[in-house]
Write a protein that binds this DNA or RNA. Structure first.
Lengths: 267, 267
DNA sequence: CAAATTTGTATCTTTTATAATACAGATTCA
DNA sequence: TGAATCTGTATTATAAAAGATACAAATTTG
């Protein structure tokens, strides 16, 4: 039942930024249900814009059902029912969960082609220059709402083992396994980026929204790169969880990710 | 030597979208070093905007050093040297690195106060409602360039053990140790968000920039929450690295973060 | 109740972004 | 060399966003 969020919002820069900024604060809990926002005049000073602009942003928030405005009283946050908690991906049990997720979510194949590996892919996977790779872009949805935008690069020799159709239904991770690829290790890198027009449309979000970006390189037992993944996630629907436990004695203590233990459960 | 990125970029919607779209394509390799962009007139048709708008986007790209424009010849992608690698924080060795980082970076204390714990802090740390906490906001810089914006909440009873001055010089993690707090475990949650006016100013970036957001809850051996950290990082200067290794036999394999091993090194 | 605060509404002006157009200068290539 | 192709520059016009201002209506507070 998610709205397309096609933003009847003011398309222009300033008002939209205010809107996005406030929406973000509501989405990630800095502003909670029932919290009162500062008065419009105050917000105008904080954001260094006119009250009219603040007004436009608040109108958009109200239209989205995130706040309630009452003359004389003020504007208050109303999130009950509207914001679902983002699904949390536990780092330690990452891959199994992704496989499971493949079963409870649906994927749509946006593009599929073969071509020379881009330089950054070739160097990450340690391929020969110009080596052919399969490039696929998919959007994954949960409950009909898209939450991730994935682009994968797989060496052509490996990609031969599954079809375009497989990609739309099965997580690439599983396909590689079925192809007999012996996966050894992976390396992930997490950062943040802004949604461009293409990704924004695919994910049903506004251009300029914040996205969690994840880059993953997977190698097989011979240290050959078998997959390069560039993933973008909606932060309101997806989050990386990392339990950490301290190990070792005083002299050489360090932190280590806790494995397979839900947070708060006794060891 | 990082530029303030104070975005002389066109703030308006259309030109910025074109800029972001092209920058994205360059950043993730769809356009590589040496590639020639379509001529401005062609781009104008592709993006359905006027050539002037395309021009503004290209100007911004050129100012950012991502493309080189030559009259008569065209616009070509130039990424060599310009794409500085963000500093990478290895998850496995997270805390020690943070301590080290405290030595090679500088911190500035933006605000420091005591007050009732906000609801989301109280529930995360399992405090009584309205319990007093110390709230401190700091900005951490490397080579004079700010890269992270940190807000910490520490129960007042614990915070008594160090001074406001300590905070400006020493990582909170270390201060807690010195205060005799016996840290047991921590839980981190990573996502993405947009820069609001305050954070944007503190980090020297444009409002609406993407930020990597990290939330951390630290508990002591008695399971009492001792720190709630909300951190925002510039994605161009900071990244989370996670090596993963597959362990176990066929029947019960799972992924586990590799500890203390630089990626690509033999086990 | 009266004063203060806050949102709602309306109007007008200013600023900024975008567009349309024309032409000059640089480069490439046959 | 000369035509074709591109970027560089300039001008003017149109549209959209943002700002300034004033006042009305609802609500809260003392």
């Amino acid at each position: 039942m998610n709205k397309p969020e096609k933003s009847l919002l003011p398309e222009g820069a300033k008002a939209r930024q205010v809107y996005l900024s406030l929406r973000d604060q509501i989405a990630d809990g800095r502003l909670e249900d029932g919290d009162g926002l500062p008065p419009e005049q105050k917000l105008a000073e904080i954001f260094r814009v006119s009250r009219v602009t603040i007004r436009r942003a608040l109108d958009a928030l109200a239209a989205a059902g995130l706040v309630v405005r009452r003359a004389g009283s003020g504007t208050t946050v109303r999130t009950s029912g509207t914001v679902g908690q983002p699904m949390a991906m536990n780092l330690a049990t990452l891959m199994p969960q992704l496989v499971e997720m493949g079963q409870t979510t649906t994927a749509r194949l946006l593009s599929f082609s073969y071509g020379a590996a881009p330089e950054f892919v070739a160097s990450a996977l340690r391929l020969e220059p110009k080596e052919q790779v399969q490039i696929a872009t998919r959007v994954r949805s949960a409950d009909g709402t898209p939450f991730s935008h994935l682009t994968t690069y797989v060496p052509a020799g490996i990609a031969e083992n599954y079809t375009e159709n497989d990609l739309a239904t099965t997580p690439l991770f599983k396909l590689l396994e079925l192809s007999g690829v012996q996966i050894k290790d992976a390396h992930q890198s997490v950062s943040a980026t802004l949604a461009g027009p293409d990704v924004a449309e695919a994910l049903g979000i506004a251009v300029g929204s914040a996205l969690l970006s994840l880059r993953r390189v997977v190698r097989d037992v011979n240290d050959n790169g078998v997959e390069y993944l560039s993933a973008l996630y909606r932060p309101d629907m997806f989050r990386l969880e990392m339990p950490l436990t301290r190990v070792g004695d005083d002299s050489a203590r360090h932190w280590q990710p806790a494995i397979g233990k839900p947070p708060g459960e006794p060891a």
